[in-house]
Design a protein around this nucleic acid. Sequence first.
RNA 1: GCUCAUAUGGCGGAAUUGGUAGACGCGAUUGACUCAAAAUCAAUUUUUCGCAAGAAAGUUCCGGUUCAAGUCCGGAUAUGAGCACCA
Length: 936
Amino acid sequence: MNFKEIESKWQKYWEDNNIFVAKNGSDKKPYYILVEFPYPSGSGLHVGHVRSYTAQDSIARMKRMQGYNVLYPMGWDAFGAPAEQYAIKNHIHPKEAVKENIKTFKAQMKSLGFSFDWTREFSTTDPEYYKWTQWQFLQFYKHGMAYKDTVPVNWCPTCKSVLSNEDAAGGVCERCGSQVVQKEKSQWMLRMSEYAEDLLQGLDDTNFAERVKLGQINWIGKSVGAHVDFKIKGHDKTFTVFTTRCDTLFGATYCVLAPEHEYVLDITTKEHLEEVKEYIRNCSLKNEMERTELNKEKTGVFTGAYAINPVNGREIPIYISDYVLASYGTGSIMAVPAHDERDYEFAKKFNIPIIQVLEEVTGTPHENESEKKSIVAVVYDRENDKYLTINWKEKGGRLFVGGTIKDGETPLECAIREIKEETGYTDLELKEESFKINHHYYAYNKDKYFNIEATPLLFELKTNKKIEQELDDDEDFEVEWVSKDVILKEIKDQLHMKSFEYVTKPGAMVGDGTHTNSSFLDGLNKEDAINKMISWLEDKKLGKKKINYKMRDWIFSRQRFWGEPIPMIYCEKCGYVPMKEEDLPLLLPDVAEYEPTEDGESPLANIKEWVNTTCPCCGGKAKRETDTMPNWAGSSWYFLRFMDPHNDKEFASMDAMKYWGKVDWYNGGMEHTARHLLYARFWVQFLYNIGLVPNKEMIWTRVSHGMVLGSNNEKMSKSKGNVINPDDIVKEYGADTLRVYEMFMGDYQMDAPWSTDSLRGCKRFIDKVIRLLDKVNDKEGFTKELEVIQNKSIKKVTEDLTTLGYNTAISTLMILTNSYEDLESITKEDYHLLLTLLNPIAPHITEELNEKLGYEPICLGKFPVCDESKIVEEEKEIAVQVNGKVRATIKIKVDEEENEVKKKALAEENVIKHIDGKEVVKVIVIKGKIVNIVVK
RNA sequence: GCUCAUAUGGCGGAAUUGGUAGACGCGAUUGACUCAAAAUCAAUUUUUCGCAAGAAAGUUCCGGUUCAAGUCCGGAUAUGAGCACCA
C-alpha cells in the first residue's frame, strides 16, 4: 500500500467535506480542545509539536465520533524577537518572513493529518486580531490597570538595546558579549499584583494537573507576615519592614535597607557617607541576576544610623546590603541572625550580636519536672578525626560529656570543668558555642523528670595533656574516642544527637521551638507567638498583619519593532491619552530598517510620520507611544478569539463564549505552565471583572507534555546534531507511523528519548493491521471468541485517550491485533471495530482499510461503546500464595464459594509441598483475586 | 540552597491504585521459509542454581506497617526540572 497516496487522499477528503469545521451554536454538546499555538520559527515543526498535537488530535477525533461538537483550532503566535532579528539581518519586513514560515508550518501540520478547524485560523500579527489586543489594553488603561513606571532594565551599551533577562544571563550581552548595565526606563505596567489572591483562589475552579497548579502557586509566592515600624534614632522618620517572623522581634539585632531605599542617604552619618555612596554605586553596576546569582558572600556597609527596636527600645544598627531587595516587601528588613540563615551569615561576617529567642524542644514534657541548666560538650581530635564520647553501657549508652551548670558558672566554664572531671583532658580550645536546646527527660538514677536548657559546645583537643579523672561513686563508664560514623550510629539520645548537629553544622536555628528572652512570648511556640505578637503590635499601633506576594506587576513595554504597538499618545498638555477605540487598529508601519535607536527606543521612534500625530483630547501636537507589547500579550486571549474568530464588532461575542464555555482541555509545554498560563488567567479575570467574558477562569483542564529528547537523551539542538525533522519521518514511514510512535513512546507527561528502532516497531504494527485485511471472511457480526477482548479493548482505549494513557491505549490495540492474528479468519465487523479504535491515532490508513470493507468513513461514524455484559468472565485464574509467595495458580468460577476456593487452593500439589509439616494459621481468600495461606 | 518530579530487565516503558512484577514494543539469540538477503513466521530472553520439575534472589539503598509492598509510612542517595538572598 502506498501510504503517501492514502494520506493525501484522506486529507483532501476531510478538507473538501469540512469534516472538522466546528459550528457555533450547534445542538451537539460543545467540546473545546486547545493546543498552544506555535511560534512559527524558521526551523519548522518540531517532533515535540507532533507529540502534543497528535495527543489532542486523538481526543478530538474520538470526541467527534462520540457526538460532540468539537472545536480544535490552530493559529500562530507570530510576534517576537526572532522574526525581528531575521528582518534586521535580511532587510525584509518581518511579516514577510512570518508569512513564509506559517506556510511551511501549515503544510507540515496538514501532512500529519491533524483535524484542526482551519476556518478559524489567525495570527496574532493580523491587524484584525491585534486590533483587539490593543482594544483590550485600552480597557486595562481605562480601568486604572495600566500605568507608567520607571523600572530598571538590562541595557547593553554596545548594541544600544534593552535585553530580556534571558539575553542578559550572567550579566553579559548574549549577542556582543559586553557588560550589561542597569538602566532606568519608563515602562508600561499592568497591575497584575492586584490579582495575586484571585489568581491563587481561582485555581480551585480549574482542573489543572497538580504540578501545573503548584507552578502557579509558587510563582504567585504568597507569604503571610507583618509590617513592623521602626523609629530611627535622632530622626523623626520611621521605616517599615516586612517579616514573616515577627515572633523573633526580640532577637532583632540590626536592620538592613536595600541600597535603593529612599531613606539611605538621609540617615547615613557623615563619617559613613563616602562608603555608603561607593557601595550604592557598585550595586547599580550589577544587574539583578548578578546580585542574586554571583553573590555568594554577603556584602554591606553600616550607615552610622540606629533604629529603635519597638518591642524593647534597644538601639540596633542600620546597614545597607544588596541581599535585601528593593522590589520585595518594603525594601527593608529587621535582621534576626539567630533564626535566619542570611542574617546569620551577615552577622557573623560583621560581628553583630546574635540573640537566641527560640529554643528547639526535644524529648517529651511531663508533669512536675525539675528545671536546670546544663551543657553537652563535643570534643574533637582533629589529628585522628575522632570525637570524645563516654560509654555508659547499659546504663545510658554512648553520650558526649554532659553536666549541670552550677550557680555562677557560665556554660563554657561548666563544660571545661566537666570534661576535666569525667575524662581528664584539659588542653582544649573552644570552637563553637551553639544555640540552647530545651530538653525533657527522665533520669533513672534520680527517679525524676527534668526540663533542662542545654548549651551545646564544641572543643578541639590541642594536646593529649591529661590529669586523673575525678569520678563520683555512681559514675562507671568508659571514655572512648570514636569516629563520626560510630556517633551517627550509636548515639541515640536526642539531645546529644541534636547538639552534635548544632556544633558541627553551625547556622541559624530556623525551626520551631519555645520562645525565650522574649518577654510576653516566652514559652510559646512559633505559631502562637506570631499571632500574639501581631495583636500586640496592632494594639500598640506599631505594626500590622500583612500578606505579601512574590508576583510583581507585569512589565508590558518592549522597545521592539515586531509587536503590537501600544495605542497611547503622549501630549505635552494632556499627558498620556489613550487612542480612540474607533481608530484601532494602530497598524505597524511598513519601513525598511528595524534597528533600535541610539538610546534604546523602539525602531518606531525613528519613523517621524508615524510618531507625530495629534492629541485625541485637545487636538494639539502629540507623539505616539513607540513601545510595543510583549509576546505574552497576544497569547493571553487567543483561545477566546478561536470561539468567534471572524467577529469584527467584538473580540468575541458573549454568545459564542457562553456556547463554548471553558476550554475543556488545554495542552502545552512545561515551560509555559508558570508564566503564560498566569498571564492568560490574569487577562481573563480582568475581562471577567469588567463583564466581557462569562467565566472568571476560561480554562478547565490543563496538562503539560514531556519533551521529545534526542536519541542520546539530551534536548534536541542543531549544535548537538540530534534533531529529528518530522518531514523526513513522514516521508519515509508515513504520518500514521509517526503519530502512533509518538503516542507510544512513553508516559505522555514525561520526557522521552527518540528511538528510530521503536518507530520501526510501530511501522510493523501498522503493517500487521494492514495484513489482517486478508483474513476477513464473509461471516456476519462479531467472532464469538473475540467478544471479551474486544469489549475490554473498547473500554480501555476510551478511558486511556482521556487520561493521558496514550501509550497503554496503543498497547491494548496491539494486543487486540495479536489476538485477531491468532485466528484463521475474522469478520468485517471485527476488523471495522479495530480500525475505528485505532482511527483517532492513525486516521489515514484506518480510513483506507475501512473503505475497502465497504463501510462509510470512520470519521462520520460512531465510536464504539463497551458492552459491559460481554466482559464478565465466568472463569478466572488466581494465584495461591504460601506466606506471601506464589506457589500455584488455580482456576475458579467468579462467584465460587470461599470454602470451595480454599479447598481447591489447599489441594494444589505445590501448595501441599510448602505447607507440609507446618501449622496453617489462617487462609486469606480475597474474592476473585488471590489466596494467601499463612503457615508457621 | 529551596520546591517539585523521577528511580522497575540490555533499552522505551506496563502493573486494574495494597493482591501472580516485568504487559506492550524495541534490541538480542536460535530455528523455519530463501541460492542469499529483506520481509514474515515460530521459540527463548530479570538474575543465579538446575537436564527438568522447581528453588532462591529481585522494582536505587536502609528501616517500618501488613496475611500480602514497585505501590503506604520514616530516613538516605542519585538524576532531572523550576525558582533562586522573596525577609
